[in-house]
Design a protein around this nucleic acid. Structure first.
Length: 486
RNA sequence: GGCCCCGUGGUCAAGCGGUCAAGACACCACCCUUUCACGGUGGUAACAUGGGUUCGAUUCCCGUCGGGGUCACCA
């Protein structure tokens, strides 16, 4: 049978990395076996609906490369793919009534106050389970009250005795006592189905074979199973993915930082980095490769290898991976990404060639484009710096040696005219050799004088080239002055 | 608190009865180098714990401890 998976988000805001991974796994499972991947919008909560959130979902999926075969924007054979549109046909209510006919559900008229009275606080957490109060209302009476316009909900009627089990591909069989199952609401008083109910109905109607979702749904799955059984529907394969947590091992939330796909991209992480990284949180390929494109992932994704234990979202490794992608990138594409940052940091440099050279320098040493400005700002203007920078034990330099070297070097550099990197490096090497110095002994102080930085994305001669003769000489003179050489 | 899930280095993560317990990030050292970075090389660092089962347990079973999830007219 052809595999059909779906990603079914609620349009309530930005797309969280946990959801992204769920979507990714659903996508990979389908694509790996030439199945279908659908997108369904679960907007049954009109209060939490956020304007524009659906667009964020489309945009994120597109950026991440998760192309769906059926969905609200492209249609398909089992539409509509937006639940609020499906509600209009009365389909959920019809199915809920079928359940009532079978004694698997019932009307409930309990007020919010009464429900609140059922709540109890345990360990500071509000816990509540419905007491089946309205189950005793005779069917005729309930229907009369409904006809009379009294507000009602429809609840699932779960048994108190016995147990219910379901099988998860990853976790195996999970069994719970029926006494644990709350009579959850299927149809809300506004006529909308709850997520739980709509999910089951739609997954069945849309022919979903593999339900991929977060681990947090595992405890409500028995109730889903009872629904499938009540309808006599085939139960899909369940694949509950392990949680992604913050460094405190708590479920990732807005509170833990910018963990939406959008935020990460805005911070300079490449979409392909995020996809790659998130794929490896809870799954690994047989050969343990780490840098993998989406197509690589499709090729070797075996959902049986998904882990059962939660994973911490580690920004450090994410950054490393981003650096790997940046380094492996075509220089042209990198330049495109880096250029805005370079230009911002170097308003005085307009020479396109020089800018391109700087981009090249920076490519192999940056993990996030946002790091670029600090790295190269010295090209624009010499920062104030501590003369202690001139001291370097391995180069055997200190402030005194640096002063004398720089003074010695000045007339030579004043004489030179070709400041292109190769030429000036050649010339300098010759000069260094003639004087019997070691490269670093001369080049270290020179680089410090030119940049005022302990670390730069390039060597001294590359800076000479970018800066040009005039600016270079001026900076060296400043260095001499700073070192007390007037 | 009830129920459910999880438990290999700081983090990700191989392993699926017999391994000197991979690899990656991070960290440290060294090499290379006109600095840093990149790249090399090497190093520190783990099977939560107690019982079983077995000739032999990281691996299987049970308990304990620890962590997490869930208990809405939210998804």
């Amino acid at each position: 049978m052809k595999i059909r998976t779906r990603y079914a988000p609620s349009p309530t805001g930005k797309m969280h990395v946990g959801n992204l991974r769920t979507a990714l796994y659903a996508y990979l499972i389908a694509r790996h076996e030439d199945g279908d991947f659908l997108l369904r919008i679960e907007d049954t909560d009109q209060e939490r609906f956020v304007e524009g959130a659906t667009e964020i979902i489309y945009r994120t999926m597109k950026q991440a490369g998760l192309v769906h075969d059926e969905g609200p924007d492209i249609g398909g054979p089992v539409g509509p793919y937006v639940q609020s549109e499906r509600v209009k046909s009365g389909l959920y209510l019809d199915y809920a009534r079928q359940l009532i006919d079978r004694g698997e559900a019932y009307y409930c008229f309990c007020s919010q106050e009464r429900l609140d009275g059922l709540k109890q606080v345990i360990d500071g957490k509000e816990v509540m389970m419905y007491d089946k109060h309205c189950l005793s209302i005779p069917r005729e009476e309930a229907e009369a009250r409904v006809r009379a316009g009294e507000p009602y909900v429809i609840r699932q009627n779960n048994p108190k005795e016995g147990s219910t089990s379901f099988t998860d591909v990853l976790y195996g069989e999970i069994e719970v006592d029926n006494s644990e199952l709350d009579d959850m609401i299927l149809i809300k008083s506004d006529g909308y189905p709850t997520y739980n109910f709509a999910n089951v109905v739609d997954d069945h109607l849309m022919g979903i074979t593999h339900v991929v979702r977060g681990n947090e749904y595992i405890s409500s799955t028995p109730k889903y199973n009872r629904l499938y059984q009540a309808f006599g529907w085939e139960v899909p394969q369940y694949i509950h993915c392990p949680l992604i947590t913050d460094s405190e091992h708590k479920k990732l939330s807005k509170r833990s930082g910018d963990t939406s796909f959008e935020d990460l991209v805005e911070h300079g992480y490449l979409p392909e980095t995020v996809v790659n990284f998130v794929a490896l949180l809870g799954w690994s390929p047989e050969d343990n490769r780490e840098i993998m494109s989406l197509t690589d992932l499709v090729d070797c994704f075996d959902y049986h290898r998904i882990s059962r234990s939660p994973a911490v979202f580690d920004y450090q490794k994410l950054s490393w991976m981003n650096g790997e992608y940046l380094k492996a990138m075509e220089p042209e594409r990198f330049a495109e990404i880096a250029m805005p940052f370079i230009k911002k940091a170097l308003p005085s440099i307009t020479d396109a060639d020089a800018l391109k050279k700087i981009a090249l320098m920076v490519q192999s040493r940056v993990e996030l484009p946002q790091q670029i400005p600090d790295m190269i700002a010295f090209f624009d203007h010499l920062p104030d710096y501590d003369p202690a920078l001139y001291c370097h034990k391995k180069m055997k330099t200190d402030e005194a040696t640096s002063l004398s070297v720089l003074k010695e070097l000045l007339p030579f550099l004043e004489r030179e005219d070709d400041y292109t990197n190769d030429a000036i490096y050649q010339a300098l090497s010759g000069w260094i050799g003639e004087h019997g110095y070691k490269n670093g002994y001369v080049l270290w102080p020179l680089r410090i004088a030119l940049s005022g930085m302990a670390t730069t994305p390039c060597g001294a001669t590359e800076i000479l080239e970018i800066l040009g003769k005039e600016e270079s000489l001026s900076r060296i003179r400043k260095g001499v002055a700073l070192l007390g050489g007037s």
